[in-house]
Design a protein around this nucleic acid. Sequence first.
DNA 1: GATGAATGAGCTTTCATTCAT
DNA 2: AATGAATGAAAGCTCATTCAT
Lengths: 240, 240, 240, 240
Amino acid sequence: MAPSGEEAVRVATRGGAGEPSSREEALPVMRERLLQAAETVLAERGYHGARVDDVVRRARASKGAFYHYFSSKEELLLELIDRFGGLLAQAMERALAERRGAAPRVEAALASVLTTLAEHRDLAWIVLVEAPVGGAAPRQRQQAVKERLIDRIRAGLDELAGEGRVAVRDTETVATVLLGMLEALATRWLMTGRPADLKASLEEVAPFALRGIGLLPAAGRPGPAGRPGEAEETQVTGTR
Amino acid sequence: MAPSGEEAVRVATRGGAGEPSSREEALPVMRERLLQAAETVLAERGYHGARVDDVVRRARASKGAFYHYFSSKEELLLELIDRFGGLLAQAMERALAERRGAAPRVEAALASVLTTLAEHRDLAWIVLVEAPVGGAAPRQRQQAVKERLIDRIRAGLDELAGEGRVAVRDTETVATVLLGMLEALATRWLMTGRPADLKASLEEVAPFALRGIGLLPAAGRPGPAGRPGEAEETQVTGTR
Amino acid sequence: MAPSGEEAVRVATRGGAGEPSSREEALPVMRERLLQAAETVLAERGYHGARVDDVVRRARASKGAFYHYFSSKEELLLELIDRFGGLLAQAMERALAERRGAAPRVEAALASVLTTLAEHRDLAWIVLVEAPVGGAAPRQRQQAVKERLIDRIRAGLDELAGEGRVAVRDTETVATVLLGMLEALATRWLMTGRPADLKASLEEVAPFALRGIGLLPAAGRPGPAGRPGEAEETQVTGTR
Amino acid sequence: MAPSGEEAVRVATRGGAGEPSSREEALPVMRERLLQAAETVLAERGYHGARVDDVVRRARASKGAFYHYFSSKEELLLELIDRFGGLLAQAMERALAERRGAAPRVEAALASVLTTLAEHRDLAWIVLVEAPVGGAAPRQRQQAVKERLIDRIRAGLDELAGEGRVAVRDTETVATVLLGMLEALATRWLMTGRPADLKASLEEVAPFALRGIGLLPAAGRPGPAGRPGEAEETQVTGTR
DNA sequence: GATGAATGAGCTTTCATTCAT
DNA sequence: AATGAATGAAAGCTCATTCAT
């Protein structure tokens, strides 16, 4: 459907191989411009506060162009949500693929989400805060993004639980809660600016989460706990 | 302070001991009616989707009456947010006052929030979901409600941390995350209806949280873990 | 109908001869309060900009009281107009009665209007500027006030014209124009604050007017013209 | 600069020589339609009485079109005021340019204003009567229009006064008063319909004014005075 | 593809007026 | 007489969307 972020960027950026601006296959540069503009504008003024005109102006496009590429303002929001959903899922997948061992993988997954959120403030705001009030469709789409992540997390937990390596029963609830922690941190960061460095929260949250699911001992002395768990590496096959 | 819906109705309805309908102390019945109506209507249609007319109609009031009691639609939202903030804070305070021992108190605090959210679906939706997009003021007010709870939780954690009973360093972050878990559960419940019984999540979340902060051993065998922590009761003076 | 300004003031001020605040004959003190308040408020915010609430608040009265004494906001304006009309007519009558000789009488008439306007800035603004847009009735009432003055001036001119002492044919037009000059000065003063001293304009306007109607010679040398016409006093019977 | 109604219509209607409906130079037809409609509607119902809907309906336009061209109802009024200000200034300039001699030029100036007012009843009403109550901005704009005319008149008087040909000291006051006379005549005509022919007033007002400023002898016998001043023609360089 | 003038339903808010007490 | 809560008809303005060019 909607081009993933990368494709879009590629398309938009490319100088063009053959035809100098051949109109037919040129994937909509303007569509990308509109999406970019929307990201900024929606974040600044909120979904309801942002007028299509604002988006169009910022993109140096025309109303007609806008409605050529999007059937409605809502659809624009949907697309942004999906995009961000893709970014999040990708990031998590990549993080999981790069690590070995249960704890490191959990940590990496948490980090990947937090990092993605921190690196896309505007999208994060739109998806976390604005989406649910954009109407029924955006609300559901946002939820879908979350569910996708929750599912992935749960899959991992299920695996660990299957091996009895984790003190978790209702993996769905725990997955929900793990994501919720990150969401809460991000939202607070977006709203209040605290903590200044969102990713730094990991240092506290990761051990909390690992202990929570029972992957880390009673926390004994949190002494050198900053970098926890390196020792007890275990190979846990991520899903897929 | 703000009378809960029921109290208010009672106040408004009551015939009174002495003066039959003395004008002076009569609490604005209509204001209460408007607030009740707003709760339902805003939850149903969202802040932006709800017209003042809808609220007024449901309250069987007139536009004039509305603007007699509220200076704007936004102010109405603010009041709803504050009310719910009061309910949450009260509930948590009560819960903490009734329990002894660190773990039980933590559990009770978590439960109180979840219970309050579950018992006021409409308000919960409004405050959790709609508030941040009602404009700058509602957004800040919502954040204030959260900060109040976070502060309270942190105070408790600080105390435990002071006694070295808890594996937490940055109590603020952990407090944020603890509240965030509940928020995530509630939001998911509001959005998807799952889990059917929001409060039941506690069974999984409480141990998770207790382990997370290091109040519960490594989760030993998650076997009988369902009802955790009874043994290690400790007297921890809640704050204040 | 409406008590003239003086009566009203008397009524309002009097401590009362006999009954200490007998309610029945006590001419409405509150009515007067409302009128006074209205004068200030209407001048400040304009007829349309002023809310009945503003008037009521300033008068420390209640809405009910207002509608007890005035059937509508418009009626309030009408009364203010009539009052000021009375003041103007009175002032002119008094001025004419006190002087002898054509030129002095003309001068005195002009002065009386200018003085009255200057001494009642608020009323002047209301009547000159706001009245015509208060609706049909206030518009007509304002015009009536003007016509009354024009009529009086014309009567004087007719007399002089009858004696051939004045170079005027269409006395109605000239009367209109004489009043218009003063109106223009007053309005400009109200709008721009210039000249600082409205009454000082007389020094220029009076000779202008006297020459205009032919009561003053060609203006020969404007030299000592400042105080014009003393010499050529003539007995012109003012009307009445 | 603003095209008079007719020109505008012509411009709007014209089929055009070359480009068949070239978009670029097409003067906003609808804007003109709205202005025309506003002139009528505001004159009929007054500024406050006229609803934007009324204007829009009369112009066979939509609300959106209205707010596309005017940022507010007030701005519409401002434009009408400015337009009329331009007409008045133009007319006076033209009149002064066409005549030679002090008295004829004064007469012509007076005539030009009266004629313009008479030929644009609606605009005259709006500018003379409604403007000051449209709010602060329209009030000031109206005053600016007047000041512009006063300035021009004063410039002429200053010149005459410099040559000692005129019995005027404070030329600003006299200029104010000269314009005020015309205003008074016009307003009365607008309000009461009298005199039926506004311009006929000139026959009385012009000699009055000329005598007033000392350009016409004592008025001797007003006998043949109807057409005054032919004899004493003098070349007075009007300004510019 | 692109334009932007035009649409018009719908919104929040105001305020003169009423009336039960 | 006096109160002020309540009424409800407007009014000005917004903005997503359409469509002739």
